[in-house]
Amino acid sequence: MPIKTEDVKWIETPKLGVLDHLYLPAILEGLKTTVFGHMLTPNITVQYPEVQAKMPPNYRGVHRLNRDEEGRVKCVACYMCSTACPAHCIDIVAAPSPWPDREKYPETFVLDELRCIYCGMCEEACPVDAIELTTLHVLTGLSREEMMFDKEKLLSVFDQTVKDGTDPIRTSAGRLGPASEQPKQAPVPGQPGAQP
């Protein structure tokens, strides 16, 4: 759509006064900003390997597979995440569930962290909030195989994040499925997706 003529705003160069033509006041002003505005103020560097930056809770990092209250994998192997995934990095093999409250569960659940583009669509697609992206962002490995995260690895990410208290905020969940537990308390304002 072309810009309308009335939306175009022409800005003229501001007129300079005598002081501006002297240059020196402007240079002194600039030096003041350099020295007192930046040089002597605290710096913002994070000493990375020793100190790790605290990511915002909606950061999209390494995935985790959530556990329910009994420690079972929450996933119901519905394939919605792998269907939504634009990078085709999720590979699920479903099997009949050994538990009475659901039909299927994932026999294997492999997520290729190298292929993933960390878009968060799996998280949005999941009807039972089983897959979530955490704030973990330091991801290294020595081989491609090592970066194929299987079910155990993804569950261990869940255990780790729960232990560290860095649970992610659910950005979008919609209604919870039957396999998902109901929230214990009234939904906290500002945390979308907590309503039943």
Binding site: H38, M39, N43, T45
Partner: peptide, 10 residues
């Protein structure tokens, strides 16, 4: 160092 300090680095 001065370049870093001016840019709020270390």
């Amino acid at each position: 160092k001065i370049a870093a300090w001016v840019q709020d680095r270390i």
